[in-house]
Simulated assay, not measured.
Amino acid sequence: MKANRHLMKRTLALTAVACIALTASACGPDVPPETTVDQKTEQFHKLMKRPDIDQAMATYDEMYGKLRSQLTATVPSLKWRQTDDVSGSGCGNNFPAVNADLRTYDAVERGLPNWVAEGKIPDEQWEAAQKVADTLLRFYGFDSGPVVVKNQPSDHYVTFHAPDGSEVTFGTAVNTGLTVRIGCHLTADAKKRGTPAAPPTY
């Protein structure tokens, strides 16, 4: 019995030594590696390659106007009206480090005003209207789409996406609607500065 206990203790001791010698992931929960890259600087430099938010808004607003005009040319019954104003927020999960610890955001997203036309696009004209949207939006860099969210009689809804995270939604049911959400871009001041902002001192 004593021999067995001695053997068991020795086995446990050897197992502990082996575990110490092996990596943490082999003997316990995974331990994430230390961060060696300045995430704030890395993300800021990625956004420096994009237009600033004012430039992006001007480009997408131009696109938005052309889209409404071309859709009306295809479906003359569409009479557009603006239903809200520009909205905005700090950038979300894609570039979380840029705005960390800042009082004023360096990186922002914008939503252009929503536009609605009373009445729906007839089913027999929906495919042509969707093609108009697809052709124009691809010219402006929306190379992902249309993603069909809904395609039923008298109820159609698609989305288009650009590499900067921007999204256009286009749908028709009782009425016809358009939205444009602009992805993450630096403010004009941040891009002019060219480097991440230092955290405030309190």
Rank of each mutant, 00 (worst) to 15 (best):
A133S: 06
Y64T: 03
V148Y: 01
L47V: 03
G88D: 07
Y105C: 07
A128Y: 04
T104E: 15
A97P: 03
L47N: 06
A117Q: 06
T159L: 05
R103I: 11
T72M: 09
C91E: 05
A58P: 02
H161E: 04
P51D: 04
N94L: 15
Y140S: 00
T104S: 15
V147G: 00
A128R: 11
P153W: 00
H161T: 03
D143E: 07
T74D: 15
L78Q: 14
T104R: 14
A97T: 06
W115K: 10
L78Y: 09
V148H: 02
L112Y: 07
M57F: 06
M48G: 13
D143I: 07
R68L: 13
Y60P: 08
F142W: 00
V148A: 03
P163C: 07
A56V: 11
T104Y: 12
N114P: 12
T159M: 06
T104N: 14
S69W: 02
D155E: 04
V132T: 06
P51M: 03
T72V: 09
E109A: 07
F139S: 10
E127F: 07
R110L: 12
A56D: 05
N114H: 14
T72A: 13
L71W: 08
D61H: 14
A117Y: 08
K79D: 10
E127A: 12
S154V: 02
A73L: 15
L137V: 00
K150N: 02
P96N: 08
D106E: 13
V147D: 00
Q125S: 12
A107V: 04
A73N: 11
E109T: 08
D84L: 05
V98S: 10
V116L: 10
C91Q: 04
P113C: 08
E127P: 09
L71R: 08
S69N: 06
G90Y: 10
L71S: 08
D101M: 08
P122M: 03
P153N: 01
H156D: 01
N114S: 14
G111A: 12
D155Q: 02
E127H: 08
E109C: 03
A73G: 12
V147N: 01
K66G: 05
E124D: 14
V98K: 13
T72N: 07
G141T: 01
S87H: 15
A107P: 08
R110I: 06
Q70T: 06
E118S: 14
R103H: 12
R138K: 15
D123C: 08
K66N: 13
K120L: 11
R110N: 07
V108K: 11
Q55A: 15
V132W: 06
D106K: 09
G65W: 07
Q70L: 12
P163Q: 03
N114Q: 11
A129F: 00
W126L: 03
L102N: 04
G141E: 02
P146L: 01
A100F: 10
A129E: 03
K120G: 15
W126S: 04
R68F: 07
L47R: 02
R50D: 04
V149E: 00
K150R: 12
P76M: 10
Q152T: 04
I53Q: 10
V75W: 10
N94Y: 13
D143H: 05
P163M: 02
R138P: 04
A129H: 03
L137D: 00
P96A: 05
E118F: 15
I53T: 11
E62K: 15
Q130W: 02
R110A: 02
T135Q: 04
